[in-house]
């Protein structure tokens, strides 16, 4: 909270106004905090959890700068020489550029195709007046989320395989050449992102739908009285009504832009499409974990985290403009 001297927020309640008003010397600040003791008490169990299970083990990141030795342990392992040895191993890999580009592109495509279709689907559900249709489609589109990537890959193969896939059978029927979708560097990312969208379409819509339910029906009523059609209602009431949820999800996903979905890529890719499919995490997996190179994994993890953090901070700045900031 910006605290002292901040211009009053539009929706400020009397209690907030009182709380934010007096310029606070130290004692007054404690006194003020004391007034919120029951709220702090509520936070306490969660904070303990984060302290123990998230922050306490964080000292472990130092292995990114050490030659981690399982026997000596994290603290006693010798410092890497030079200290950036494992960062260098990543940055100087001939594949560094390719990995960054692939990770970023796949992630960005997924960011778009994992958001917009879900949002549209949620709008469709929200606008659907036929309850049974809505219920059925909602349940059906939610089901693929429960299939593991191995199964989704099996299903994908049934559709796009070069010799047996339904799509290629169709193409052959039309007299066209079959396409090796999974081995083609032109098609692979499309297939990857398409499968991702398919899997989580209905699942991703749930959260937007939940947000839409929270919109006050009286606002729609008022708009109807003003003669606004359905599309204008969507544009002027529904979408602004869930704006903060959209912003929140977008910012959080932006922070994870260097996670392009390890599990899926690992299951889907093959050597012929490495040049468009190999991402940071699959590389680290092959280099680091197969050889128990935890220091490298930690160094790359640190790099991803810093990048994500910078992006989130920038995005949060931007989100402030729409009053959708995360903190």
């Amino acid at each position: 909270m910006t605290g002292v001297g901040a211009p009053p927020a539009p929706a400020q309640t009397p209690a907030q106004a009182v709380a934010a008003a007096p310029p606070a010397p130290r004692r007054a600040r404690w006194a003020r905090a004391w007034r919120f003791r029951s709220l702090y008490l509520m936070l306490l169990p969660g904070l303990i959890y984060f302290a123990v299970y998230k922050y306490a083990p964080m000292y472990g990141v130092i292995i990114a700068f050490k030659d981690y030795n399982l026997g000596l342990g994290i603290v006693a392992s010798p410092w890497a020489d030079p200290w950036f040895k494992y960062f260098d191993q990543f940055f100087s890999s001939p594949y560094f550029g390719q990995l960054m580009v692939n990770t970023f592109l796949i992630s960005a495509y997924k960011l778009f195709w994992g958001t917009v279709p879900c949002l549209v689907l949620a709008l469709l559900f929200n606008e659907c007046r036929v309850t049974w249709l809505r219920r059925w489609v909602q349940t059906i589109s939610y089901m693929p989320h429960f299939l593991s990537w191995v199964i989704v890959f099996g299903i994908t193969v049934a559709f796009v395989s070069q010799s047996t896939g339904l799509i290629n059978r169709g193409l052959e029927g039309l007299g066209a050449e079959p396409i090796g979708f999974l081995t083609s560097t032109d098609w692979f990312r499309t297939i990857l992102v398409g499968a991702d969208t398919w899997k989580d379409l209905g699942w991703g819509a749930i959260i937007y739908l939940a947000a839409m339910v929270g919109i006050d029906p009286e606002r729609y009523e008022a708009a109807r009285v003003d003669g606004a059609g359905r599309l204008r209602q969507i544009w002027h009431i529904t979408l602004p009504g869930i704006r903060n949820v959209i912003i929140l999800l977008f910012v959080l996903r932006l922070g994870n832009i260097l996670d392009a979905g390890f599990e899926q890529v690992y299951v889907f890719y093959n050597v012929q499409v490495y040049s468009v499919a190999d991402i940071i995490d699959t590389w680290v997996y092959r280099v680091g974990l197969e050889q128990l190179n935890f220091s490298l994994a930690a160094a790359v993890g640190l790099f991803k985290a810093v990048t994500g953090l910078v992006l989130i901070i920038l995005a949060n700045r931007l989100a402030k403009r729409w009053d959708g900031q995360l903190w």
């Binding site: 191993q89 890999s93 001939p94 594949y95 081995t183 050597v271 012929q272 490495y274 040049s275 190999d278 590389w283 092959r286 280099v287 197969e290 050889q291």
Partner: peptide
């Protein structure tokens, strides 16, 4: 870096084959 070399070799051999 065995992984990078293996990746490169695998990619190229695949291309020679296809």
């Amino acid at each position: 870096n065995d992984t990078d070399a293996a990746t490169y070799a695998a990619q190229q051999v695949a291309q020679f084959i296809n």
